[in-house]
Design a protein around this nucleic acid. Sequence first.
DNA 1: GCTCTGTCGATTGTCGACAGTAGAACTTTG
DNA 2: CAAAGTTCTACTGTCGACAATCGACAGAGC
Lengths: 231, 231
Amino acid sequence: MSDTSPRIDRPLPRVTLREGAAHALRQTVLTGRLAPGAPVVEAALARSLGISRAPLREAIRELLDEGLLVQHRAWGGVTVAPLDATVARELYTLRTALEVFAFEHVWDRRDDAFRSALSKSHAALTQAIDMRDDEASIAAEFALHNVVYEAAGHGLLLQSWSAIRGRLALYWAAHHRAHGRPGPRRDAHDDYIRHAIGPDLDAMREELHDHMQRGLSTVLRFIENRKEQAS
Amino acid sequence: MSDTSPRIDRPLPRVTLREGAAHALRQTVLTGRLAPGAPVVEAALARSLGISRAPLREAIRELLDEGLLVQHRAWGGVTVAPLDATVARELYTLRTALEVFAFEHVWDRRDDAFRSALSKSHAALTQAIDMRDDEASIAAEFALHNVVYEAAGHGLLLQSWSAIRGRLALYWAAHHRAHGRPGPRRDAHDDYIRHAIGPDLDAMREELHDHMQRGLSTVLRFIENRKEQAS
DNA sequence: GCTCTGTCGATTGTCGACAGTAGAACTTTG
DNA sequence: CAAAGTTCTACTGTCGACAATCGACAGAGC
């Protein structure tokens, strides 16, 4: 029983309107077309997407769980999550813990595929920075860290990381729009990669704390500037 | 401008059908009235709850995010999450990391209120075990660990813990129904409390790893027995 | 003038009905 | 009898309309 049909890598995603709406809404938030704090009105949004409110509501619930939208109480309406220094600090401290955990898990299982994926994504990040493509830089940085989380082979960890990643993207994207130069510095990940491939796990732990601390400082400075600019 | 109106403890909860349905469905899963692996059919459930499918669907999405339900693909139908040894291992390893993180955060801020809440919930747990009230034992153990997560004052951590807690409850509840004696051993948390109040953070870290390892072993044994019993 | 109350418009929460899909049951065909 | 094709059915995904709720505003009463 040979199959004459061409091999398909994976069944193409039967996309529902809810999934499409969630994706579109996510992009709208991350590109800032809906600014932090802006109200999200169901009827208007549904009309603009050309769908009914039912699937859109489910998509909104999805983004609420991701932390990109917030709802204060029932019938209160939902808004885009505002930028907040406390949340930013929590993002980076928890992210540090998760990434340390990821490295502890992957450490003894690091193979050539891991090292190659790491340096490959690092090269892509460097190139994106060189080309002054800020949006690509952000995506590349996510991809770089994603390599580690994927390699850990820990489903629950991956899920927790995803929950954080969404919020993080919100801050980076806002930063990106505010300045012309939003992406990470060109050499920001050199030490990170070096230690990630190296032999010393403790050194990697320390590097992670430093790396995150630097990232957090940048975000906090941005938030502070933004606040006094608003006043 | 003194307020003459009577003091109200808290604004009465404007509960929506979606919230009510989510709560009811969660209880149904955790009490095993819907066993792991069982299909969840919208129309039937909505009828039995006396509501329409729209709010129920949103409630189902909520439980999907909590990991209590799973959906393989669109139009595939959702089922109660099955018990799985790999997921159990992930639950306990990640939980260890989170709880270590929580203690690191709270360590220098431990005050009398913290210590009192801890010993209080420990007493409640011991009492529930003595009274052979298994359901109360589980609730009390959650409450005990919750004290730590709350005290850490880290919103994002609390959220990650909640995501894990739901799944954990699924395993504990199944274990609870299978055996007559499901709750933790009477002295299982003695060392935990002692170190949590004590001066040595490193000792607490080690105790956490041991504590979780013991819990994981119990759950894994249960899953294995369950599997061969099914065959 | 100030406070309270009733009303209105806008928005969210809910409903019943319809359309589309996947899998089971059945029929056909070699 | 087995394999492929064809209905059938139960279910999920989607829709438009209705009901409940909130915030703002205007008018009544003091």
